[in-house]
Design a binder for these strands. Sequence first.
DNA 1: ATCCTCCCCTAC
DNA 2: TAAGGTAGGGGAGGAT
Length: 994
Amino acid sequence: MQEQEDDPYAAVEYRDYASYFRNKRQKLQNQNDERASAAPNVSQIFEGVIVYVNGYTDPPSHLSKSQITHIIASNLTQAKMKEFKNYKVAKPEWVVESIKANTLLPWHRFNVLRTPSSFPKLESSMNLKASQRSPIATDLAVSGVAPISGSELQDSSLGYLDENENDMIASLLDQHPDVQHESDFGLDQRNQSLEHSNTSATNNGMMLDKADPTGALSLDDSVNPSLSIENQPTDPLKGHPYTPSLIPPDLSKELASKRREPSVPIDQTESLQMQPGGVDNRHPTLIELSVPWNRLNSSVQPGFVEKYYQSSRLHYLSAWKAKLREVTALYQKKRPTVLSKSKVRMIMHVDFDCFFASVASRGKPELVDKPIGVAHGSGGSTSNSEIASCNYKAREFGVKNGMHLKSARALCPDLVVVPYEFQQYEDISIEFYKILLGNSDELQAVSVDEALVDVTSKCFPCWGSKGGAAIKSGQLGTPAQLHPKVFAQKIRERIYETTGCHASVGIGPNVLLAKLATKRAKPHGQYIWQGAPGSEETILELQGPQTILTTAPPVIAPDAAVSIDDASSQSQQDDELINTKVTQPAKRLGVKDLPGVGSKITRELEERLSVSTILELQKVTREVLQQVCGAKTGDMLYKYCRGIDDSTLESDRDKARQSVSAEISWGVRFENQIQVEVFVNDLAMEVSRRLIEIDMKGRSVVMKVMKRNPAVKGHWKHLGHGPVDQFARTGQLSAFTDDPNLIAKESLKLLQQFNFDVLDIRETYENIAAEILKGEGDSALTKNEYGNPDGSTRHDDKPKSEEWKELEAVDPVGQEDQGNDTVIDQDTDNAQQQDLPSPQICKEEDTAEWVEAMQSMRPRLLECREIGELRGLVDAWKESTLLRLPQSTREAEGGSSSRSSSGQTGLIDIGPCPEDVEQFIEFVVQVVEMERDLERVRLLLSWLLRRVQAGGIPPAHPELLEGHRMTWDAAWEVISGAVQERVAMLYGGSLSLS
DNA sequence: ATCCTCCCCTAC
DNA sequence: TAAGGTAGGGGAGGAT
Ligand SMILES: Nc1ccn([C@H]2C[C@H](O)[C@@H](COP(=O)(O)OP(=O)(O)OP(=O)(O)O)O2)c(=O)n1
Ligand SMILES: [Mg+2]
């Protein structure tokens, strides 16, 4: 494997590599010996397979190289890679997993060459670690293939770590090689045993040997009954049903008792106690769950799924996107298709500047000059949450969206952390889309803060370096058309007026150039890409910007409508001013700047072709790019770096959703099978909800799982999944459904087939997908009977064949029958007709229907209601502690009490009486003990504390402080003392209020 | 060739 | 503390 200085994982790899080689020979020797006596199962699987050791310079003499079809290696040097390029080079896991599955798996999923730089560092590291203990699977070559029997196990065994974690692990190892990591705790005895079983052919073989020889471990289609929940032996000491996982029962008992020995018995109470120093032998998952806060925020907590989805920004982004695509498609179906005479499109890309951050600083002048980042957590110095969005001030320090707070603070110590405001994002987005829909021929919702708009008919063409060329040559626009520069500015202006947030606008002749134009316009500006796709001008401009555009805040005279004549002459004179130009330090566009080019392709291009800039990319032939990146991707790269992009806007006008899924990979921790089932059930309900919402049903169920990979050590995101392997299985339901029970049942069945120890599960994912029926080109994620394409509920329903024809048409413009086919909906024409004649930016139409649809898109903004409820409750209680005349009954406890929030005035605060305090304690303790919602408790106590510290807390009228009254301070002491005592009893710690 | 299936990758 | 979701394009390998 090639060494890479810039790779953070290289160090890790090297450490292992060195020790690996020290031991390789001896281990291989031993293992081959062991293997000779291994289980018959193994021999059967690899019947006819010939093994030799790679890593020696030549193949063994008794094997002719031409016989060899498979080579097994964790990694390969460049030279070896070349040498073996015509062989099937599989990772050791191929052997391991095959043995595990008791069948020979397709080798290609373990292909070393396939992902030469995808996860190489991680994988090789893990493999090498494994190889130190059980190197048989490490460097082998295999010739001959055994017949495949049994069902196919469909797992990928790729490790999963993100860039941040790679960095993190590398830096931990670099800087603190002796740091005690999570999985370094004594439990590793057990982990290593398991690991052995996972990665060692030999030991797996031995275990299989011990296992039921009739194939207890075979993964046939039926669920192993011994694994069903009723039959699972419950280990009383562990407090959860023990899932035998990959280990046969007798051995698993052995392991279980081994595991138990050095550690204390773990029951609910016990597991909540911290281990004061010393080695904690419990499973890392149990250790994590022994911390009260972790319990409360992990999947063992009832209601976790709901709570999680209420807080996950990425969930919101996805949900919003789906909803926006749905409603914008619905809207556009109901309005006439705008026919463009021109072949040359004009595409506008609109994107809010640092959206979440902008919303946060809206109307807060004290924030605009400061670097801010939107993130969870109070922003304390220990916080390490992810920054969803940071403003441009923060970006000057190098802070980026998606960065962890700690790294951001290292770059920018004064970063101000502000909370999410999901409801605001949604409201603003609705306004944003209303504006754009009213000014579009066609619109594609890209995300909550970003859209692509076809504005061909709204603007007159001005392509070419001489902006007015088209106009001069006589292709005048209609009177309704604006110069794109004016159009863009008006759009920006209206967005700012309506939302208080700045959006940037890019306009170009295709999607690609529009997006690149936006990139150049940011922040707070607009840019019109004048060069034609593939033109010399564009090719040069893509090589590196010499200029950027910024404009002053969009300020336009109210009557700034530009007439054709004005625009015409103006564009001759002001050609240069279409985009206000400001010199900037030339920064070359990198390949990463092309949409669709992410970290993997970037790395691939860098490593294989030494290409990192667009300029360099332009020099590579299409053939080479296709060879390196695949046919379509190579072609895409070839075209994109020249500004060519033929893709059309996807308004989803006639495209149905293909799949619906729900997944959570944060906070997923289980102690027992029950919790797993509850969780899977919750996810199934989520999927079902989403299906019903869009009126669809599905038939194919995919269950994906992440399983903890104990071989990789280090710290990672708190309660995150950490290093894992991913597995997936697909099942077919007998009929299309949106029934949560059916989905859950199938999902659980699929999950059971993996036989994982519940302690190691780190993510679950349920997907219900299209089943493509043979001979029918249609998606089988079907609409139900009412929304069925065969039904006639849709106004613009066309015979299916024509729909497809239309889809396939390269140029949708001016097709002969298109106009005929398009049904003009009666209730949209008014809005449209208002739009077209006016040269002004159109007002967003009030299509009540659409607005209604939009407003139903509040996926999960419930937290406000909850907090509001709580506040009302507490206020009611507080009110009861104020002196009322006569102050007697105490009706206040339940939220059902006096609704008299108005009655605040006129009450005199004379401090609480003991009964009040007693009642409050009783209430909060109930929350602690029954609801077990510590977050709620924390809210209650925090509220009280704030009141005590701030509000009318010091006795307003000490003279009234008779014997049965107490000060708020004293009340606080009593209440918090009592509550904390209960918390301590239940959770073994106290609740921090900060 | 072309389709299907199981992934990986990308974007926000 | 913290909330690492999700749909869809496309590649590789096998089936047809
Ligand atoms: N890793 C990321 C990227 C984005 N977002 C959210 C927050 C962003 O505000 C919003 C829009 O994403 P953009 O890529 O458009 O980024 P911004 O709008 O924040 O900045 P800009 O568009 O100015 O580059 O999506 C997120 O939560 N996590
Ligand atoms: Mg944005």
